[in-house]
């Protein structure tokens, strides 16, 4: 006699459908919002690709790596090399300046300030993040640039023999150094608020344990706090880097855009920025040139997307002990 197979167990869904009107409306709007954000980003990308394709097609690889921009309609040459490198250079300076400031600020707010002062400082930092970049640009141009030019001149006089601090023009205004400072002011609040959040979630017992073992504040910071929160801080830094790469107006106010690659002379009054270049040229561009500017937008989009992807990857990987 053949054994009878046991009847397969029916597998039932554990999710209830929304019963109330409010639930249904809420589910619908959430689904709609999620889908529309995906559609919107895709549409923007398709639009940019469509409008910029002629430029990529006519300019070829030189669009990225060349250094000439000639808007003579008879012989249009569009190459954004110096702008692309300039964006990277200025953002890097900004990040290098901003990271120590932001981390110190976050440490102070979380571990040193009393409750009341900590709260006030937090609000101030968030307000700084909310400043429109055109305001920061004007501040950078009118107030900050002359001051920073003085610093730059001092650096040149003391360290000018090091190539990156060389300056051939004698003009210390409108340099990547100054633009980097302005960018740093913009991204300090971003990095600081991410870092503050991470510091405040840190297990206080770890800090107590470190102090109980005879550690000072500095070695606790360096050997316990930083390693434990490192991944999150890197995520915040990359978030700031994304903002810095896309910064437009503020840099436009304080930097000379020159179509000749300035590899690393950060005190020289020439630099580049993809986003600022689009702003500078858009008003007077003919149809073909607009395609070239759209193409710059595509490049910026891809670079920023790439930075954000690295950011989320690092943040996800960084803290394996947090399940």
């Amino acid at each position: 006699m053949a054994e009878t197979q046991p009847a397969p167990i029916e597998r039932r869904s554990l999710r209830a459908k929304p019963f109330s009107k409010a639930d249904r409306a809420f589910f619908k709007s959430a689904t709609w919002a999620a889908n529309s954000s995906i559609v919107l980003v895709s549409l923007i990308f398709i639009f940019l690709m469509w409008r910029s394709w002629p430029a990529f097609e006519s300019q070829g690889v030189d669009y990225i790596f060349g250094s000439t921009w000639d808007n003579n309609p008879e012989n249009l040459v569009m190459q954004i090399g110096p702008m692309l490198w300039g964006s990277i250079l200025v953002s890097t300076i900004g990040v290098v300046l901003a990271v120590p400031m932001a981390i110190s600020l976050a440490y102070f707010i979380v571990f040193m300030a009393n409750d009341r002062f900590g709260k006030i400082a937090t609000v101030m930092v968030d307000l700084l993040a909310a400043l429109p970049s055109v305001v920061l640009g004007l501040w950078g141009l009118l107030i900050f640039s002359p001051v920073a030019a003085g610093w730059a001149e001092m650096i040149y006089q003391g360290l000018g023999f090091i190539p990156i601090f060389d300056n051939s023009s004698g003009n210390f205004l409108r340099s990547p150094f100054i633009a980097g400072w302005v960018v740093a002011v913009m991204i300090v609040p971003i990095i600081a608020s991410v870092t503050r959040e991470i510091f405040s979630q840190l297990d206080r017992d770890l800090i107590s344990a470190s102090l109980a073992l005879g550690a000072g504040r500095w070695s606790t910071f360096r050997r316990v706090i930083l390693p434990t929160s490192g991944g999150g801080i890197v995520g915040g830094v990359l978030l700031g880097l994304g903002r810095a790469l896309g910064e437009t107006v503020a840099i436009f106010f304080v930097l000379n855009l020159v179509f000749e690659v300035n590899w690393f002379n950060i005190l020289e009054d020439q630099g580049g920025s993809v986003a600022s270049m689009i702003l500078a040229k858009f008003g007077e561009a003919g149809q073909d040139e607009v395609a070239g500017l759209m193409a710059a937008g595509v490049v910026l989009f891809v670079v920023t997307l790439f930075v954000n992807m690295i950011a989320s990857f690092i943040v996800a990987k960084a803290q394996p002990w947090r399940k």
């Binding site: 297990d203 470190s210 073992l213 550690a215 070695s219 050997r223 434990t228």
Partner: peptide
């Protein structure tokens, strides 16, 4: 005067060995 806490709190980024030696490192 050493201390052991209520909740076990080894340093999460360190190995077993490095945890034992953490006091030396922290106090340089």
């Amino acid at each position: 005067v050493g201390m052991v806490f209520q909740k076990p709190n080894p340093f999460p980024t360190m190995s077993i060995k490095d945890n034992v030696l953490s006091g030396l490192k922290l106090a340089s």
